[in-house]
Design a binder for these strands. Structure first.
Length: 307
DNA sequence: AGGCAGGTGGCCA
DNA sequence: TGGCCACCTGCC
């Protein structure tokens, strides 16, 4: 194991820093790490054959892997090392102490939730850059993770600034506003290209709109997000959960609909009803609970797996 | 080979 | 409110 790791070629990006532990992040299983980085929260992490993940967010690039004891560790291109070191704690939301928080979920009265928590201990909700999270979930309509990743990879490759040799960030919203819809469409976006183009125009017309929205309380922030073209309740909740740390957001998509029907007997319930049930049953950490439920169903093979 | 896909918006009763 | 359908097109 150690040998193949040493023999495998480092990715592009020039010289890479030495591996260091991610501070304040407890040991994880490989399954849980994969759920965090490649389970539908973020779409710019790619797993190499040896299990190492390579990801980009804002102007940051990092590799992440598990040391032998399961301790997550990271490495960055030397030129970005200091910046990444600063950005990592926020991105992994290590200040949230979710392992402790998760204990306040109603697992004592919910046997299914209890086994999800036990099996995926350490599952973390990322705190991604708000604008990039919005872009990612605008791409997500009726697409699976593999394809969303493909769209964003193309957007970055063709329209994003280079941040290290061989690596490009996602285009910013001001940059997106300058791209004709046709060029967006060419990045495999399909009808989502129009949503992104129109949203970019909205944002360009209102400087500071995103930053203000991110700072608003949950309900007000969600309402504002839903006023953007292509953003409905589900997308807004995903953006707030994965891009703003609003753990009370409980996105309801077709999969959570199936999961809740199967595990909680909610057959035939409509999305709005399931959302209300979720908030009432799971409480202020409903979004975290949801991520555990997803992890469980994916392992059962009831959810599409990322490539 | 052809349907389907991790939503949203618009239109109709 | 509630249900239905178009929207793009790459992938299994």
């Amino acid at each position: 194991m150690g040998k193949t790791r040493e023999l495998s070629r480092p990715p592009a990006g020039g010289a890479w820093s030495a591996w260091r532990p991610i501070p304040d992040l407890a040991a994880l299983s490989a399954d849980v790490l994969a759920e965090i980085l490649d389970g539908g929260q973020a779409f710019r992490w790619h797993r190499a054959a040896d299990g190492t993940f390579l990801g980009v967010w804002s102007d940051n690039i990092a590799q992440v892997r598990l040391a032998t004891e399961g301790q997550p560790e990271w490495s960055a291109p030397l030129a970005l090392e200091a910046r990444v070191a600063r950005a990592l704690p926020e991105y992994f939301a290590t200040g949230q102490l979710l392992a402790t928080l998760a204990d306040t979920l109603p697992w004592r009265s919910d046997a299914h939730l209890a086994r999800c928590l036990a099996d995926f201990r350490g599952l973390q909700i990322l705190r991604q850059p708000f604008g990039e999270t919005l872009l990612g979930f605008l791409c997500s309509a009726t697409k699976q993770i593999v394809q969303i990743k493909q769209m964003l990879a193309l957007l970055a490759e063709r329209h994003g600034a280079e941040i290290a040799p061989g690596h490009r960030r996602l285009p910013t919203w001001p940059e997106l506003a300058a791209i004709p819809e046709e060029k967006l469409r060419a990045c495999l976006l399909g009808f989502r290209a129009r949503y992104i183009a129109q949203t970019a125009q909205c944002l360009a017309a209102h400087t500071g709109w995103l930053e203000e929205t991110e700072a608003l309380p949950y309900a007000a922030a969600k309402e504002r997000l839903c006023s953007l073209p292509g953003v409905g309740e589900k997308v807004a909740d995903c953006v707030l959960l994965f891009g703003a740390g609003r753990l009370e957001a409980f996105p309801v998509d077709v999969w959570i609909l199936k999961t809740m029907a199967r595990r909680y007997g909610l057959d035939g319930w409509k999305p709005a009803q399931v959302a209300q049930f979720g908030r009432a049953h799971f409480g202020p950490l409903a979004g975290l609970a949801q991520q555990y439920l997803f992890a469980w169903e994916r392992r059962q093979g009831r959810l599409p797996r990322p490539a």
